Computed example of a mutant assay.
Amino acid sequence: MTALTKLGHSELKIAPIGLGTMSLKYGATKQNIEVLQHAFDLGINYFDTADLYERGMNEDMIGQVLAPMRDKVILATKVGNQWRSDGSAWDWKASKSYIIKAVDASLTRLSTDYIDLYQLHGGTIDDPIDEIIEAFEQLVKDGKIRYYGLSSIRPNVIKEYATKSNMTSVMMQYNLLDRRPEEILPILKSKNISVISRGALTQGVLIDKPARSYLQLTSGEVGHARRNVEKLASSLKVSKTQLLLAYALGHPAVDIAAVGVRTLAQLNELKEVIERPVILAENDRAALEQGIRKLIYTEHL
Rank of each mutant, 00 (worst) to 15 (best):
E272I: 00
F40H: 00
D130M: 08
L236A: 11
R70D: 02
S152N: 06
L188Y: 08
Q173M: 14
E230P: 07
I62T: 05
F47E: 03
A281Q: 15
L188M: 12
R154K: 15
Y174A: 12
K144E: 05
N175I: 12
K78Y: 03
K144R: 07
V259S: 00
R55N: 09
G87I: 00
R109H: 00
V79S: 04
K101Q: 13
S213V: 03
K78S: 05
K141F: 14
L270N: 00
K191E: 12
S106W: 04
N192A: 15
A225I: 05
M61Y: 05
I292G: 10
G8T: 15
R262D: 02
D208F: 06
K159Y: 13
A257E: 09
N81M: 04
Q203A: 14
A258L: 03
D104K: 01
G20A: 02
I153Y: 14
S169I: 07
A233Y: 09
P128L: 13
I125A: 06
I99Y: 04
V222R: 08
G223F: 11
I187T: 15
A287K: 10
K164F: 14
S235L: 11
L217F: 12
A200K: 04
L267M: 00
Q119G: 03
S197Y: 06
A286T: 15
V238R: 03
L232W: 07
A253G: 01
T77N: 02
G291N: 09
S85I: 09
E11F: 14
V195L: 06
K189V: 08
S213E: 15
S111N: 13
A105M: 06
L243G: 06
E137W: 09
E299Q: 13
I196S: 05
Y26P: 01
Q64S: 10
V222M: 07
L120A: 00
D116Q: 02
N268E: 03
T112C: 08
K189F: 13
E269D: 00
S194H: 05
G123E: 05
K191I: 14
R293E: 10
G199R: 04
A94K: 04
L177F: 11
G27S: 01
